[in-house]
Design a protein around this nucleic acid. Structure first.
Lengths: 244, 244
DNA sequence: TTAATAGTGTCTTTTAGACAATATATA
DNA sequence: TATATATTGTCTAAAAGACACTATTAA
């Protein structure tokens, strides 16, 4: 680092005249969920003719007097019919390359959204949950804009935060079993985990889960009924749930 | 999550007409360094009269055809005389509350910058390195805008990433001793660490450091000469350096 | 009954942390 | 010499991981 006391340009307060642009600001949302034990990403088909055959993250431009979080929720609702006010929503990063959109300077604030599994499929004509293992393959969607750069960042963020935070609980319902929670880890990381060691780690991570009353019914294939749990107060996990 | 196939609003391609605003986009940089064993934050005095007595993160509005990273470097150079092309620079998050700047909608992309310690002080008239322990106290600076929300996020990001990544090496020179590296951890976390256990953890974290040739000279108080090291290839640490 | 899932026990290896002991410099 | 810093050694506790075993359901 070189810190020099050379002639310093004076600060330009925001809003005053300066050789700067006013960019369009958009929000794009990467919504992940676990369905049938597989990690899924929500994509929509933009109806711009030049993007026929491409899929995109649901995105909207930011309105006056609308917070970025509000824009994210609105993009999900308007473009995919997804109303998830309780979903986990966090900023991923902002993509602002001058050339990322050929039609002009658009700075996009990307969000990561995580929701519990539901059996509700999206309308396959306008929005679809894609298996993340298909992304980047021939069977997978072609992504519009620079969304092929955003999606890997979203996946890595989710995979990483499952290690050090209690974020996995955002993928399951209010009350859940440790088997359900384990299948979240397995789907997001793409691995299989030892149920015995997984249980011990979850229970020993202080504040990750608290026991709820009652037992869950086994699935159609049978099995011992599982204890039920709720999220605990912790957000960071000690000790962490490290990827194998 | 509720996914409904209700009437969907059609996608508005970026750049087309829509009830949206074109926000001013700015970049603010939280530059951290370690000086005399203490964590420091770079702040500048905005010369807007209504902000007299306040300090701010160096920030600039984004220019046409300028990437966000370029704006961050320009803000450091123009407002603080800091030219640090090799500094670690990463996005922190984007602050876009409609009311965060009273003079209009300004979306600010905040960056975290980390640089090695140098003995060069900034020009105390325009830019200054503040001890982070002073922030929020009576002796500390009053922060402008919403920078009192950005700074804690920057500190927590740095503290957290020291655990799981090799980012601490961004605070030291190309060749360094494990004592220097330990003092980075101690300064950023505000703790003191056992030198013996610290050494073992750093060396056993695969790819964190590699041994360099020669020994460093002891300081004025004496002491055994330390082995010299360089950064290794790893970015994520296994095992991690967990905060005590 | 068998198959499937949940949960416990046990053992080994790895890692964390406290702290004693040794090595090599400066003053 | 005393003091400061670096490095190694040793011991204990905690955590990770492999895997055998028990528990309770569905078909």
């Amino acid at each position: 680092m070189t810190i020099r006391s050379e002639r310093l340009t004076s600060a330009v307060p925001p809003g005053s005249a300066a050789p700067v642009s006013t960019c369009a600001v958009a929000v794009d949302v990467a919504l992940l969920t676990v369905l049938d034990g597989r990690l899924k990403l929500l994509l929509v088909e933009p109806d711009a003719p030049q993007l026929a055959g491409h899929w995109a993250l649901p995105g909207r431009r930011v309105r006056d007097d609308e917070s970025l979080d509000d824009t994210a929720h609105r993009a999900l609702a308007e473009l995919a019919g997804v109303r998830a006010p309780d979903a986990h929503l966090e900023q991923l990063r902002t993509y602002g390359d001058p050339s990322r959109d050929p039609r002009g300077r658009v700075v996009s604030v990307a969000y990561l959204a995580l929701t519990p599994t539901t059996h509700d499929p999206t309308d396959p004509l306008t929005a679809q949950l894609w298996d993340v293992e298909q992304l980047g393959t021939q069977d997978g969607p072609r992504l519009a804009y620079d969304h092929d750069r955003i999606v890997p960042d979203a996946l890595e963020r989710a995979r990483s935060k499952l290690e050090y935070t209690s974020l996995a609980a955002a993928f399951v319902a209010d009350v859940f079993t440790l088997g359900e929670l384990r299948r979240v880890y397995e789907a997001v990381w793409g691995v299989s985990l030892d149920p015995a060691n997984f249980r011990r780690k979850v229970v020993s991570a202080r504040g990750f889960v608290t026991e709820a009353e009652g037992l869950a019914s086994p699935g159609p294939g049978g099995g011992r009924p599982a204890k039920r749990y709720r999220r605990g107060p912790a957000t960071r996990l000690h000790p962490a749930m490290l990827r194998p």
